[in-house]
Computed example of a mutant assay.
Amino acid sequence: MIRGVHHLAISTPDLERFVDHYQRWFGFERVGGGGWEVGNDRIDTMVGLKDSTATYAFIRLGNLHIEVFEYASNDPVEVRPRMCDRGITHLCLYCDDVVAEYERLSALGMHFHGPPGEGTLRATYGRDCDGNVVELLQIAGPECTFQFHDLAVA
């Protein structure tokens, strides 16, 4: 039986820079990490790569865990998906005040596609330090059918 989501994973060219940004910008905390060296056949089979080597960190914010990888081998392809591309297109972070977070993160250097909108669902899309899309969302009205309190927060 599937019980829920454990984590999502993101690959980055600079693990420490990425983790630092997510700690300072969004309030994540580092909760673990590790890595492997070339010659680990079990992991090579799992990730579908030959002679892979990487370091990783687990970071957490509330009930969301992200496993961040920095591969030191293989030829990474830089991917900057557009919102219409197939696959995972963005990470959404819930905010109490999306305008305040937009202003705070803009001052820290985060680039946004535009300012937050008005209405019941207030949201904006920006880019993290690697160009991944991060949405900031505030649900401002009780009439919205998907409230943050509907989520199990540990």
Rank of each mutant, 00 (worst) to 15 (best):
P13K: 04
V5C: 14
I59S: 14
A9D: 03
S106M: 06
I43K: 01
M1A: 14
S106T: 13
F148C: 05
V99H: 10
R30D: 09
I66Y: 06
P142A: 07
H6R: 15
G114C: 08
A57E: 15
G27C: 12
I139Q: 12
N63Q: 15
F18E: 01
D44G: 02
E70M: 03
H6V: 06
V38R: 14
G119D: 09
C129Q: 00
C84H: 13
G62C: 11
G87F: 05
V47L: 09
L93Q: 11
C129N: 03
R82E: 15
Y56V: 00
G48C: 08
R3P: 01
T124E: 05
E118D: 13
T89I: 13
P13A: 05
A107H: 02
T89A: 14
Y94W: 15
L64A: 15
P115W: 04
H65C: 14
A123D: 01
S52G: 06
R127P: 00
L105Y: 06
E37G: 04
V153G: 02
T145M: 13
V19N: 12
L121S: 11
T53V: 03
G39A: 04
R104W: 10
I43D: 02
K50L: 09
G39D: 04
F26G: 13
V68T: 08
I43W: 00
R86F: 08
Y125L: 15
H90N: 12
D96M: 01
V134N: 06
L137Q: 10
I59A: 15
I59W: 10
G141T: 03
M110Q: 08
W25V: 02
L151E: 13
D130S: 06
D128M: 12
F28A: 14
I88A: 15
G87Q: 06
L8K: 01
G33Y: 09
G4S: 11
S73L: 06
G27L: 12
I2L: 15
C95V: 05
Q23G: 05
G141N: 10
Y56K: 02
D150N: 12
N74W: 01
I43Y: 00
G119N: 10
A154Q: 14
C129W: 02
H21E: 13
I59E: 15
A100N: 02
G4A: 13
D130G: 03
P81V: 01
H21N: 10
C95W: 04
P142C: 02
R24W: 01
D75Q: 11
G109A: 07
Y125K: 08
R17A: 12
M1I: 09
R127H: 14
G114E: 07
C92A: 15
R80C: 12
G4F: 07
V134S: 09
G35C: 03
A140E: 05
L93E: 09
P142N: 07
I10Q: 09
T53D: 06
L108P: 00
G48A: 07
H149Q: 10
F18S: 11
D14P: 05
V99N: 09
A152D: 12
E118M: 10
Q138P: 03
H113W: 09
T55A: 03
H111C: 07
D128W: 10
S106E: 09
Q147V: 02
G39F: 03
R30Y: 01
N63L: 02
E70F: 02
M1F: 09
L49H: 00
